[in-house]
Design a protein around this nucleic acid. Sequence first.
RNA 1: GCUGAGUUGGCGGAGUAGUCAAUCGCACCUGACUGUAGAUCAGGCGACCGAAAGGUCUACGGGAGUGCAAAUCUCUCACUCAGCA
Length: 425
Amino acid sequence: MAKITFTVEKKDKKTRARAGILKTPHGVVHTPMFIPVGTQASVKTLAPDELKAMGAEIVLANTYHLHLRPGEDVVKKMGGLSQFMSWNGPTMTDSGGFQVFSLGSAQRAGKKKVTKFTNSVFVYDKDAASVEELANPSEMTSFIEKVSQQKHFTKRIKPAKLDEEGVTFFSHLDGSKQRFDPQISIEMQEKIGADLIVAFDDHESPLWEYDETKLSLERTNRWGLESLKALKRDDQLMYGVVHGGMFEDLRIDSAQFTDKHFSAIAIGGSYSSKETLYKVIDWCVPFFSDDKPRHLLGIAEVADLFEGVKRGMDFFDCVAATRRGRHGNLYISPQSGGQKKNNFTMSIMNSKYVLDENPIDPLCACYTCKNFTRGYVNHLYKADEALGKRLGALHNVHFIINLAKQIREAILEDRFEVLEQAWLG
RNA sequence: GCUGAGUUGGCGGAGUAGUCAAUCGCACCUGACUGUAGAUCAGGCGACCGAAAGGUCUACGGGAGUGCAAAUCUCUCACUCAGCA
């Protein structure tokens, strides 16, 4: 009998939205749910009791980072991820597959940043050939130059080297050569010991054409099977990852393949636009079994939550809440001026908030909004006080978790579309 | 009072005859941020015109000189600091 189970409690009548519950030995998770990202076994600036207080039910850490520091063996000896970070609840680890690309490739091309929704440029060095010959050659040379000169890059970019069995790349900490493959990733994730783990996947560049993307997907599928094969523990739930870029038939193939082999399904990838992202979900979800949890990897802005849930997704994780929080970009509801155009955020550092006595969002019940004015929070950021970044991250994570909770309640009460209308118009 | 050093944009601090509206920090203003190499990054920051490219003007303590040309050299005044009286 499975130790981790997922059940759908209620389905929306008009959309694919659904509410469910995931049961693990460490506690239950109600869906739709936002999973705060704690890459290095820490949700940046936030303590576990604060996460609990705002309704977080699960946190995500990253295998790549924990492998480099402190090492999966340390985490294991310290009692596993949950005990190590004193998080009394379910946990999840990402496989490290994504880092192979976010690290081995690069993040910016001049003013263009490599993110999910801009014109992405990924360095794909499959034959260890010169990077200039790779995708988008016109920009690549200056791109590598500029990226290498970024302040926080202490070493020149060394692109990841991909082969059919795995990936060789270089530590961002000390430049040391690292090797990941499905077996290694799963072994590390078993040692780290999260309840939910992710199969080791390959990651296509959004710039690639069909054939290249297809080859990448075949690799992901093969690695997925190898990940399953490498699994020794029986108390962890492994997500398979759907890929296939922006090609409908590849995504559908991948969705079917993943549903066939895995008990939990994640959608991965990078997208050239939100529209592409939503289309991809639309293509895939019809091929997912009802009783399997569905995770949209790395995506969870306000609008994405509605759009993802509407299309049938259950779990969302994203660094945006914590990162934006640290950077002073705070979520606000439509009543406070939040809209698609501003990603439902405001910049608390703007001078117009200096004398503002209102909370960040009057409708928000988080600790920050209950106790502090915009003027004070503005001051904390300006003064570079750590408390400011904490209050910001706290508000943002609370905001998204609470939004997921509202969405869940709306589904349970048959008014999902009403809520969506109120937010997205 | 004598001797020496200094006075540059909101602040600190480069420059020491032309390529200087003036390097670089800080502060300030505005953006960006989606499986976190990010408590980060990018742009702006004398005035006026311009969407921009660019243009015009006023600036390196005050004043007076030398030079084709001065933040940079000379004289002088003011102020600051250090040592000696």
